[in-house]
């Protein structure tokens, strides 16, 4: 039998049934994992960032342990690699790439943009990161800001906590979350008000 010729829904049902039968996974774990992936989106990441911008204690907990902190918001990254969060400030800007493959905090943000997996993005993010930011996204870092390229190679999944834009004093978390795009969460762009 050639497995590639079986309709994919039948193949999936068979594979799923075997995993359950052999006790590799449980129904509950599969359901939980499915719910996590259905809920994952850049909008969720934006909510996490907006909360960090408006709640100093949460910000500290998020930087210390991303996976545990987002549980406070009802986001459970069960079965996913640990979420690490790196913070941008006036002195340091982070850009996330996975030069080896396409590691991305999918359990929180959903599937990565298609270009994130391209060889061109992955190579240039380390070989010419400032040129990449300037020419592909129009992102110019303020003078005196160092660029730290985080190559996500192993067992963490990294997200950027951008700087809160000026001109947003007094905004609530929901309004702030509306400013944040998926590209801000990996540092190829910088949110503005």
């Amino acid at each position: 039998m050639n497995l590639t010729e079986i309709p994919t829904d039948r193949l999936l049902a068979g594979f799923r049934g075997l995993l359950l039968e052999k006790g590799v996974v449980t129904e509950a774990a599969l359901r939980q994992s499915d719910e996590t992936m259905q809920a994952a989106s850049p909008a969720r990441g934006a909510e996490v960032v907006a909360r960090a911008w408006t709640d100093e204690g949460f910000r500290a907990r998020l930087l210390a342990d991303g996976t545990r902190a987002v549980e406070e918001m009802g986001i459970f990254l069960i079965g996913a690699p640990p979420l690490g969060v790196v913070e941008n400030d006036a002195a340091l800007h982070h850009l996330i790439v996975c030069t080896l493959c396409s590691c991305y905090p999918r359990a929180l943000l959903g599937y990565p943009p298609h270009w994130y997996k391209s060889a061109a993005f992955r190579a240039r993010a380390v070989r010419d990161p400032r040129g990449l930011l300037r020419e592909e996204w129009g992102t110019e870092l303020p003078a005196g800001t160092r660029l730290r390229v985080v190559d996500s190679t192993a067992d963490y999944r990294w997200m950027v906590l951008p700087r809160r834009p000026s001109g947003t004093e007094g905004w609530d978390a929901a309004r702030l979350a509306g400013l944040i795009r998926d590209t801000d969460l990996i540092g190829v762009t910088i949110p503005t008000a």
Binding site: V86, H94, V126, R127, D128, P129, R130, R146, L147, R148, V149, V150, D151, S152, T153, A154, D155, Y156
Partner: peptide, 10 residues
């Protein structure tokens, strides 16, 4: 590449 810029890798 620009002096002062870094890579951070696992």
């Amino acid at each position: 590449n620009q002096p002062g810029d870094e890579f951070l890798v696992e």
